[in-house]
């Protein structure tokens, strides 16, 4: 079997409100904490949807659009940087599993 990249994998996910450009974020990340005092920046590797990335300068960035609502970052982050909630069915993103 061909090895799948994360974008190929996420390409198989049905997201809600995909057409909405103004979707409301359901997770807020205080990246100032990630980029100053956090000793591990673990979300950049533990998040199964790779919503947390490091740029060339080593700065952490977060985007919620690819989030599959698994909850991982809420537990993995022990620095108080992640404020996690469920996406609003109407105005948010989030998933619609076809198989689950």
């Amino acid at each position: 079997m061909k090895r799948l990249s994360i974008s190929e994998r996420l390409g198989l996910v049905s997201y809600r409100n995909q057409a909405r450009t103004d979707a409301k974020a359901h997770i807020e990340v205080d990246t100032d904490i990630c980029n100053s005092t956090c000793p591990h920046q673990c979300t950049t590797y533990v998040c199964p949807a790779k919503c947390y990335t490091l740029d060339e300068a080593g700065e952490l960035h977060f985007q919620f659009e690819d989030c599959i609502e698994c909850g991982t970052c809420m537990y993995a982050c022990d620095q108080g940087a992640v404020k996690w909630s469920y996406p609003d069915p109407e105005t948010g993103r989030g998933v619609n599993w076809n198989f689950g």
Binding site: M1, L4, R9, G71, N98
Partner: peptide
């Protein structure tokens, strides 16, 4: 990915098509 490529697992997956990737705590 590494698990799927283990020889014993790989041979069980041959010819399959991934239709969903998911994760949950």
């Amino acid at each position: 990915n590494q698990f799927k490529e283990h020889p014993a697992v790989r041979d069980m997956l041959t010819g399959g098509k991934v239709v969903e990737y998911s994760a949950h705590v």
